[in-house]
Design a binder for these strands. Structure first.
Lengths: 221, 221
DNA sequence: AAAATATTTTAGATTTGTCTAAATATTTTT
DNA sequence: AAAAATATTTAGACAAATCTAAAATATTTT
């Protein structure tokens, strides 16, 4: 089933406001979409007949199972495009959203699955938000290894899986420890090594083996 | 200035039918766009007020300078996306058009210029059609592939792009080589295969894949 | 529990892009 | 050059998505 750009934007906004658990009110959604409550009511009646949401007059509404599926699919498209724009076309993190708002409405499933593959099945977009896979599953983890962390996005080291002396030797040498703040600057395709930057110092690279063992999360503040 | 998807499709079709030299008729355009003549008239009035074309009642219409600029921009977007889909996402040549029809309407100039750069400023799309640069300039090569050569017009083979053994086997079999004179007699819509005639002998057909690799020019004399 | 206030829905209008059917203009045929 | 055929435009309608203003319903306050 395909939906219009407008229908997709309503679905997406409902999901962003409350997921599929809580009821959303007409005014809230009007505010979010920068439209009028009357327009919201009109569209909701339409989405109800399409069984994308549960809706009782004056009682607010909530996404149905099908509605959630549709929402996750739109979010998948949006975030994959954001990743592409940032990683491949070198847009800065603050420029990607607007363009992705347009690209997300191109509905070819094949396009999105191939794009996903081309990008290496990324798990998070440049803002650190998780990207649903082609079955709608998302990594809820806020912890990732450096290898999966988005480029140019602040990170804080939270864990090191391999505690061997050999690993610790490298960490000590590079002055990396729990709590260290860093950013990933570059992914090298050839050997999947990674360049990181700490405290605005000169970036340096680490091998994939090392990167896969260093876990990071969004910094506290 | 931004135009709606529908307006863009009209502009693009006019350009495809006649460029900006000849007048296009209402029925031709209705046929091309799979719509009704009345709808064409409606849209043309609108495009006239936007100064994208010259239009006199009952006299047909032609793109204005501004209209041509818009058309070339849409074609640029379309062909860059086709190149991307084919080169990066590994779509086959026959799958790219449909998806590009959607992507071409995403209007961010920055997106397209960065995509162009990322792709290495390609000059031709996967079908061999030239891609306008960001100033609207296209490689207007006097050399064309057999697929683009006009019907019943003398041509001389100037180049063969694919020099693989498999390609050369076909050329040898059909007795085609650099300098061979031929005429294109027919285009088959179904598989875009092409019928050619050499030395007034019995015409025979070649596939699109082969035709796209054989370049021709006007014979010397 | 009634009044006041806030929220939501309905009724009716508007814009864009499309359509059918009828009217008008142009071109071709006789 | 008139009739017939063809092409184009106009008139009026419709669906989608939106809006304003008014009515209906729900919630909060007194």
């Amino acid at each position: 089933m395909n939906y219009s750009t407008s229908e997709e934007n309503y679905i997406k906004s409902i999901y962003h406001l409350k997921g599929d658990v809580q009821n959303v009110t007409t005014n809230e959604l009007a505010e979010e979409l920068k439209t009028r409550p009357a327009s919201v009511t009109d569209m909701l009646k339409k989405l109800k007949t399409k069984k994308l949401l549960h809706y009782e007059k004056y009682q607010g509404f909530r996404l149905s199972a099908e509605g959630k599926k549709v929402a996750l699919n739109i979010i998948r498209r949006h975030r994959l495009w954001e990743f592409f724009l940032s990683e491949k076309l070198k847009f800065t993190w603050d420029e990607v959203h607007e363009v992705a708002e347009e690209l997300e409405h191109v509905t070819s499933k094949k396009l999105i699955d191939k794009l996903d593959e081309y990008l290496g099945f990324p798990k998070f977009d440049p803002h650190g938000d998780p990207i649903p896979d082609n079955k709608g599953k998302m990594h809820t983890a806020t912890h990732l290894t450096i290898s999966d962390w988005p480029l140019n996005t602040p990170a804080e080291v939270s864990k090191v899986s391999d505690q061997s002396n050999d690993m610790l030797e490298i960490l000590k040498h590079q002055q990396i420890s729990i709590g260290t703040r860093l950013e990933v600057k570059k992914h090298f395709v050839f050997d999947r090594s990674i360049e990181i930057e700490i405290n605005n110092a000169l970036p340096f690279s680490i091998s994939e083996q090392v990167a896969r063992n260093i876990w990071v999360k969004k910094p506290q503040s």
